[in-house]
Amino acid sequence: MLNIKLDNSHISINDNSKSKKSVLEKLASILSETTGIDADEIFNQLYERERLGSTSVGNGVALPHARLHGINVPYISVIVLEDAIDFDNIDDFDVDIVLCLIVPYEQTDDHLVLLSSLSQILDDISNRKKIRSSRNTEQIITCLESENLNYI
């Protein structure tokens, strides 16, 4: 069981961001508020990862992620977009669910376990439907529950 920070303030639903860049900026700003790390630093790390290839995992979902110095536990932020956007997606589905993961720099192992667990949750079409139809942030957190993950 892995601990991850996720609370209502990390989630934005019916979000109006219109581009990949603005989504990454929004994620950086949300995560900066909660971690105290400079938003530019978070943005740069997420952006640098996207340069290597899109973190889109298909079916309208993207999982931007980075390892960062200055945090002790992993954090998640979730943006559900009003309108799907081009995320340099790997399939024909533009992205409207963006789940961003940042983990402490040295935790390479946990990073991958978390990515796998989150990606498994989002591979399930019923979970994606629930996330898209969520009316409030609590419902989103419920959708992301998994036996491997403990949201703190």
């Binding site: 340069r51 290597l52 290839g53 899109s54 995992v57 340099d88 790997i90």
Partner: peptide, 20 residues
């Protein structure tokens, strides 16, 4: 990383899910 960045830039995009 450097090869992937160069290939992505030459090709215009990276059409795969890639990890390094």
């Amino acid at each position: 990383k450097q090869m992937l960045l160069t290939a992505t830039s030459v090709f215009g995009k990276n059409p795969f899910r890639v990890e390094i």
